[in-house]
């Protein structure tokens, strides 16, 4: 018997963002609880408890899935990508950058899931049209943006929309000082 008479915790090997973590978890632990509270990867959010909002979307073997409905123990042997795994070598991904520049990140709470859904879409479809983008994001509820800036951001990330109308800013003070 485990803690409080519950079933024993089990050693679960999770591969998250390419890094392996061996953690002791109750079998009832969802993947969302495991990444947020055990691994401290709090970028994955929970909004609805039970698969209605998409805020907890992660990629499992590249496919967007809901961490709040996934058992952590069933994620063993599979590659999990959370929002913390999108940036590479200290640089944010084109999707993250586009969401930022387009104003798609208002409160930001739904956006880690949204960006992972967008990332999965662009991995299988380089230049999705607007309808395809809407379809791919239909499982991620956003309450701030009305989706417009999100759709625009995915178009920017896929090189289909330019941000040229945006003012270019001078170099930062830090960059100026370095010169």
């Amino acid at each position: 018997m485990g803690v409080f008479g519950r079933p024993e915790k089990q050693l679960v090997a999770l591969t998250v963002n390419g890094e392996r973590h061996d953690v002791a978890l109750e079998p009832r632990a969802t993947l969302l609880e495991a990444v947020r509270y055990t691994l401290g990867l709090t970028g994955s959010k929970q909004g609805c408890d039970k698969g209605d909002c998409g805020a907890c979307t992660v990629l499992i073997d590249g496919k967007p899935m809901l961490a709040c409905l996934s058992l952590a123990i069933e994620a063993q042997g599979r590659a999990v990508t959370t929002i913390e795994g999108l940036a590479k070598d200290g640089k944010v991904s084109p999707v993250q950058d586009a969401f930022d520049v387009c104003g798609a990140l208002q409160c930001g709470f739904c956006q880690s899931g949204m960006m992972l859904s967008a990332t999965a879409l662009l991995a299988k479809c380089e230049k999705p049209n607007r309808e395809q983008i809407k379809d791919a994001l239909a499982g991620n509820l956003c309450r701030c943006t009305g989706y417009t800036q999100i759709l625009n951001a995915v178009e920017v990330a896929s090189g289909q929309r330019s941000v040229a109308e945006r003012d270019e800013r001078p170099t930062t003070q830090a960059q100026a000082a370095a010169k």
């Binding site: 509270y37 401290g40 994955s44 944010v92 993250q96 950058d97 990140l105 930001g108 709470f109 003012d167």
Partner: peptide, 25 residues
């Protein structure tokens, strides 16, 4: 009047931003 990025939105984009339930003591 300029279209600037928000100061903190990259933190939201990367998952660094700490919301109430992200706090653990």
């Amino acid at each position: 009047g300029r279209r600037l990025r928000k100061l903190d939105s990259l933190k939201k984009a990367t998952g660094e931003a700490v919301y109430a339930d992200d706090i653990s003591l």
